[in-house]
């Protein structure tokens, strides 16, 4: 990358008060190592343990969602264009914001946006009820997740989940999710 582009990128990242930004192929070891770095950093900031665990757990759910989705499309023989995943942790005033983005197949967009709209319309009690209902469902064969990640993030968030879905071409949308803690 050219020096001036790198400067612009770094300036953009600093303006957003980012603690960590990772873009590239997500492996389990990347998720784990970045997670450790985030926790070490937050511990040095002397914030409450429950706040550290909220940031860490939302980060893990987002990063594992990106990784599991990518792996599931690979398993179907329809790999996602390389390195489209990104996870970012930043600070706005006195609270943390954990965001992620990744490409997804156009066919998966309606189901995801319906789910997110439903979660956005629920209060704490409603989110807990949906969480309990989902957690009692039998696991789907071959699934890597339990379908609880988004609900759990919505429960930890202090504001409704923000998201966007932007068409990239006929086949893919870029999905971004922002969780305010």
């Amino acid at each position: 990358m050219k020096g001036n582009e790198l400067f612009n990128l770094q300036e953009l990242l600093s303006r957003q008060k980012l603690l960590i930004c990772f873009s590239g192929p997500f492996s389990h070891s990347v998720i784990e190592e970045l997670g450790k770095a985030v926790r070490n950093h937050l511990e040095s900031e002397q914030i409450e343990k429950s706040a550290i665990m909220d940031v860490f757990s939302v980060y893990v759910e987002q990063a594992q969602n990106v990784r599991n989705y990518t792996a599931s499309r690979e398993a179907l023989g329809r790999p996602i264009p390389a390195n489209s995943g990104i996870v970012v942790i930043g600070k706005e005033d006195d609270h943390y914001v954990v965001s992620s983005g990744n490409l997804m197949e156009a066919g998966d967009v309606p189901g995801l946006s319906a789910m997110l709209e439903k979660l956005r319309g629920l209060d704490k009690a409603g989110l807990k009820a949906v969480y309990k209902e989902q957690s009692r469902k039998p696991r789907e064969a071959g699934a890597t997740g339990a379908g609880l990640g988004l609900i759990d993030m919505a429960r930890k968030a202090t504001r409704p989940l923000e998201y966007s879905l932007r068409a990239v071409d006929d086949a893919y949308f870029f999905f971004s999710l922002e969780v305010q803690l």
Partner: peptide, 9 residues
Amino acid sequence: SYLNTSSIK
């Protein structure tokens, strides 16, 4: 001390 959601399940 910590479980992700699939471990919770």
